[in-house]
């Protein structure tokens, strides 16, 4: 792995202000190819805001974000997805009235070509594409550990399955970088462990980089190679999980200052 080469994603001096509120303060952040990195911080630290800037949902007030050599700072979400950034949402945002399979097929949208006339006339090319897409979607569901739920509506799935379906849908966009926004929020410890195993498997079997956002430190410690800690929109620490865990400022941010009498 050529880690010294250009990282997959480079955020340079990224800043986001909401009116008078400074949510992200001139953050520098990189994601190397095929790595698992984490962004943690207490609630309100600016993690999701940063995340939303990476995916085009918010526009950065200043700074630049370069993904895979392309400046994506001002691109709309669908264009960024097409370049290879897939994401999940902190509060699950599946398409509730669509089946699990359809959810995944929607994720493939930017990789399919079927046009209006081709679909109306049922051209062989379009039919074949649809067939192949469906096959691939079923494989993705199986890969994500979803059994026999293909034709169930997303909203009727169990919570853990909904989380997995979100990942399957994000994988369907064929990402080079997968962004997971607090994927274990609301899971019990068992589900969390199972989910992290799944992330590890994902990492082994697919050539993608993963950015994990968490506010629960324990979750990311085992899973990630590098941890960045945000507090009040600023990077307060960065390094291996062990280094970060011992950092004074991190402990302070999470637990408060030690009483010094």
């Amino acid at each position: 792995m050529n880690q010294a080469a250009d990282p997959l994603l480079v955020a340079d001096n990224v800043r986001k202000e909401f009116g008078g509120l400074l949510a992200v303060n001139d953050l520098d952040f990189t994601i190397p190819e095929r790595s698992i990195v984490s962004l943690i911080g207490p609630n309100g630290a600016g993690k999701t805001t940063f995340f939303n800037m990476l995916t085009g949902l918010y526009r950065a007030t200043s700074g630049t974000i370069v993904f895979d050599g392309v400046d994506i700072t001002d691109k709309p979400p669908h264009a960024i997805t097409k370049l290879g950034v897939g994401r999940t949402f902190q509060n699950i945002r599946l398409f509730p009235q669509m089946t699990a399979l359809e959810n995944v097929l929607v994720g493939m949208h930017s990789r399919l070509k079927g046009g209006i006339l081709g679909s109306i006339f049922g051209l062989p090319r379009v039919r074949r594409e649809e067939r192949e897409a469906e096959e691939k979607a079923r494989e993705l569901l199986a890969f994500s550990g979803l059994k026999r739920v293909d034709d169930q509506l997303a909203e009727s799935l169990a919570y853990g399955d909904q989380r997995r379906l979100e990942v399957a849908r994000a994988l369907a966009t064929e990402p080079k970088l997968l962004l997971l926004d607090e994927p274990t929020a609301g899971m019990n410890p068992q589900e969390t462990v199972a989910f992290l195993d799944f992330v590890a498997k994902l990492r082994e079997e697919r050539p993608i980089a993963i950015l994990l956002i968490e506010h629960d430190m324990k979750v990311v410690m085992g899973a990630s190679e590098r941890v960045t800690v945000l507090d009040y929109g600023e990077k307060i620490a960065e390094g291996s999980p062990n280094e970060v865990q011992q950092d004074e400022r991190v402990i302070e941010a999470y637990l408060g200052r030690t009483a010094s009498v």
Binding site: H78, F95, Q97, G107, H109, S110, G114, T173
Partner: peptide
């Protein structure tokens, strides 16, 4: 009917269901 069951139809329904998520899944809104 043909459109409903096509790639475009899925995208429409996805937008109806959740516009933000649809955009994030690569659908040009």
């Amino acid at each position: 009917m043909r459109l409903r069951d096509s790639r475009l139809g899925r995208a429409w329904i996805a937008i109806r269901e959740d516009e933000t998520a649809a955009g994030a899944m690569g659908i040009p809104l």
